[in-house]
């Protein structure tokens, strides 16, 4: 399915570098390649410190001042990496938008939801206040929010987490973006609400392509067509969700699967991976996962693994993968 569809977003050699207080530079994201097909939901899975959030920020080119990025980004053929900031601003929120973990991120607490939505609308389209209001009502209705007029008059903190996240998704979809990036959109929400939000996101995928960043394999299993697994700044595995989760190639992916709790009594679950992810400055030579890997060989400690691509399109970066 996803192999034939046109490419909505492509990134090559994406690297994010930060300068530490002592002047040393350290790479937090290293040579990430990413292809998002139209209509696809792509999961970027990793634990904290893996670089997944930074990857998302760099796709939108909104990294903090202290960091810089390298590599190419193409949105439907248009090169974003070289665009001047003015043009980039026009694209953000319109052709490419983002939803954050905390729905209140960057929201002014003294502005009503309606006021924020109207501004988001008029930032990219000329419309009267009345038109903007009507469009806001329609947007809220489209994400399943009852009594939208009332909600527009409310302040962000007055609405529940789940409701606010719906509002943020509505706002992200206002201008029919080609790509919407969601960074842990459901982590702060209850399980039953999470289910609703993921459902909502899946319905949207038809009109927009989705990049979903999460640490939760269950979320990825539920909502994503393909997943990229990240560890210590690099992509270690890439493939269709069902393939990767049923038959992981990379030992880290297998480790994550084994460490997660299961509902099925026949699957053991909660088997720890020894050790912890290295801090960027103390990354070992060779494969970053080698010190914790039960399948590590001498080569793994010396050389960083090349990416192996299988005919089906799956790829992984490992010298001694599972089969």
């Amino acid at each position: 399915m996803s192999g034939q569809a046109p490419v909505a977003l492509r990134a090559e050699g994406l690297t994010v570098v930060t300068r530490r207080s002592d002047g040393r530079e350290v790479a937090l994201v290293r040579e990430v390649n990413l292809v998002l097909h139209q209509g696809e939901a792509l999961g970027l899975v990793g634990e904290s410190g893996s670089g997944k959030s930074l990857t998302a920020l760099s796709l939108m080119r909104v990294l903090p001042e202290s960091m810089r990025q390298q590599g190419t980004i193409e949105l439907g053929g248009l090169s974003l990496s070289a665009l001047p900031e003015e043009r980039m601003r026009q694209i953000r929120g319109a052709q490419m938008s983002m939803v954050f973990q905390d729905p209140l991120t960057g929201l002014n607490p003294v502005r009503t939801v309606g006021s924020v939505m109207r501004e988001a609308l008029r930032r990219h389209r000329r419309m009267t206040r009345r038109q903007a209001h009507e469009a806001s009502v329609a947007a809220l209705r489209s994400v399943g929010i009852p009594s939208p007029q009332e909600r527009l008059r409310a302040y962000p903190h007055q609405l529940s987490g789940g409701l606010m996240q719906r509002v943020m998704i509505a706002m992200a979809l206002l201008h029919q973006p080609a790509v919407i990036i969601c960074d842990e959109p459901t982590t702060a929400l209850d399980a039953t609400i999470q289910a609703q939000i993921l459902d909502l996101l899946q319905l949207r995928v038809a009109s927009a392509s989705l990049i979903l960043i999460t640490h939760d394999l269950g979320v990825a299993a539920q909502a994503c067509d393909r997943i990229l697994v990240m560890y210590s700044g690099v992509i270690v595995e890439n493939g269709r969700t069902s393939e990767v989760l049923d038959n992981p190639r990379h030992p880290y992916t297998a480790g994550l699967l084994a460490a997660a709790p299961t509902l099925d009594p026949s699957r053991p679950g909660m088997i720890p991976i020894p050790g912890s992810q290295p801090a960027p400055l103390s990354r070992p030579p060779g494969c970053a996962f080698a010190p914790r890997c039960a399948r590590a060989q001498a080569r793994c400690h010396r050389e960083e693994p090349d990416v192996t691509t299988e005919p089906s399109g799956r790829s992984y970066a490992c010298w001694n993968p599972h089969d």
């Binding site: 039953t192 609400i193 269950g218 299993a221 509902l263 099925d264």
Partner: peptide, 24 residues
């Protein structure tokens, strides 16, 4: 049952899903 259904694991694709309506 609903909570169980909303509990996502890597095997989530294979269980039935019950999506509750509305906020608590």
């Amino acid at each position: 049952t609903a909570l169980l259904s909303a509990t996502l694991t890597s095997a989530s694709g294979r269980r039935e899903r019950i999506v509750l309506s509305g906020d608590p």
